Structures are given as C-alpha cells and as structure tokens.
Amino acid sequence: MAKLKITQVRSRIGSSKVQKATLDTLGLRKMHQSVEREGTPSVLGLVQAVRHLVTVEEVK
C-alpha cells in the first residue's frame, strides 16, 4: 500500500457534523495540518468524503 500525505487546506467551519467527524478520524484538527496514512480502502473512503477540504499527495 502507498503512503498518503493528507493536508487540510480549507476550514471545517460551516461543514456538517459528519464531515467534522471524518476530519477528526483522519487526525486533522487544524488548518494546514498534515498526517500520513496508509492508502487503505477505508482511508480512501474517508478522504473521498472530505475531498473539498483536503489535498492528498503520495509519499515515496
């Protein structure tokens, strides 16, 4: 599995409770915070749910 670097680039203000919970699950609490996660199907699903709030890069 590939490692992914997920960065929150937009504010969670105005987002639904579900989207806020998804960001919390990914480990993103603040703007411009980044986390590295394995590219598992469950993580990819979480990223897909908040794709308008985050950017995703593959880590080599």
Score class of each variant (00 low, 15 high):
50 V>N: 09
14 G>C: 12
55 T>N: 08
3 K>S: 13
36 E>D: 04
17 K>W: 15
31 M>E: 06
54 V>W: 07
16 S>F: 07
19 Q>R: 12
36 E>Q: 14
3 K>C: 07
26 L>A: 05
39 G>D: 14
57 E>G: 13
15 S>K: 13
54 V>K: 08
50 V>E: 02
9 V>P: 09
23 L>P: 01
8 Q>E: 02
46 L>P: 04
2 A>R: 12
36 E>C: 08
35 V>K: 06
4 L>F: 10
31 M>F: 09
45 G>Q: 05
30 K>D: 02
51 R>L: 14
60 K>N: 15
15 S>A: 14
21 A>N: 13
34 S>R: 08
54 V>S: 08
28 L>S: 11
22 T>P: 02
41 P>Y: 03
10 R>G: 03
56 V>L: 14
58 E>L: 07
7 T>N: 07
17 K>N: 15
4 L>T: 08
33 Q>M: 09
53 L>K: 03
10 R>S: 09
17 K>Y: 11
21 A>P: 00
30 K>T: 08
48 Q>E: 15
47 V>P: 06
50 V>C: 07
43 V>S: 08
1 M>N: 09
29 R>W: 01
32 H>G: 00
27 G>E: 02
2 A>V: 12
2 A>W: 01
52 H>A: 12
48 Q>M: 14
8 Q>P: 04
28 L>G: 07
29 R>M: 00
47 V>A: 15
50 V>G: 02
14 G>H: 12
32 H>F: 15
24 D>K: 10
44 L>M: 15
36 E>M: 11
26 L>F: 01
56 V>Q: 09
22 T>W: 00
23 L>C: 02
